[in-house]
Design a protein around this nucleic acid. Structure first.
Lengths: 145, 145
DNA sequence: GTATATTTGTTGTTATACTAACTATTAAAA
DNA sequence: TTTTAATAGTTAGTATAACAACAAATATAC
């Protein structure tokens, strides 16, 4: 393979693998009969870990943009897993919070999610993780503005 | 961080980085005034390298599913960069081919695409690439059916 | 204190991703 | 040979993902 083409190949592998990881989780969620998507789960989990957050904070934590977050929150609201509460002192923003339904769902799904996530990393060592994280962070930084 | 949560974190980093790589390329395509997306580029490049292919072959090579490939090909056809030719001997399928316009575009974009792709990998060594590829492949295999 | 800039969130548009259901065609089985 | 199965591709529906343009509220500058 030519030197220059090598980089396209690596980008391709990265994209392919990320899609596979997401697809696997999506499929497992489905098989388990859960009515939420992986991205919706990520939002629920943040709220579970950190408590009430506004939409900007959620977007920052998940590295999604604001319109995407608006829509994920819309869908979770319709399912009554979260609520947008008025923010006292800033009428532009909401305090997004888990409902008791939402909290119950997070608690019940958590162990299975951890199994799903672990599956990807079978047969990989502790030093592999470190290397992998270092390289991913390096790529991310190379492309940051 | 708890052992189990570590894996979610790695999946998150993988997803985040893959999105960033794609976003960067998209932004550069845009800045260069190109009227194609990154995924559309991938299809054009395959046709440039391998010649005529049917839609299934293109889907397999790019690891995309068939409906997605149908739509990418629709869009590239509208732009008259490729054509669906009848397949002699199998009336179910098409032979997809670059038009002369399409071929000209691939040739003119190729050097810049290589620069875009290279950007992600600055400051990484040859052994980093090898490690990275090995780990990505391992993850992919762990999740394959 | 008013003009200007920034922040928070929404809406609209285009493209990818995945599932399911479908048509048309070809291949395999009985 | 006719029934059945498999393959190639499309269409429909839902959910991200990214960008642009926007409204409303808040913060800053003068």
């Amino acid at each position: 393979m030519q030197e220059a083409q090598k980089y396209s190949r690596y980008s391709f592998l990265l994209d392919r693998t990320a899609r596979r990881v997401k697809q696997y989780a999506k499929q497992r969620f489905r098989e388990l009969g859960w009515s939420i998507t992986v991205d919706q789960w990520t939002v629920l989990k943040q709220l579970y870990d950190k408590g009430e957050l506004n939409q900007r904070e959620l977007a920052d934590l998940t590295f999604k943009d604001h319109p995407t977050m608006t829509r994920i929150i819309d869908l979770l609201s319709i399912k009554e897993l979260i609520v947008r509460n008025a923010h006292p002192g800033d009428r532009r923003s909401f305090k997004v919070a888990l409902t008791s339904e939402g909290e119950k769902l997070v608690k019940s799904c958590l162990p299975e999610v951890q199994d799903i996530r672990m599956k990807a990393w079978e047969n990989l060592s502790e030093s592999d993780f470190k290397e992998f994280k270092r390289i991913l962070d390096s790529i991310y930084d190379n492309l940051s503005l």
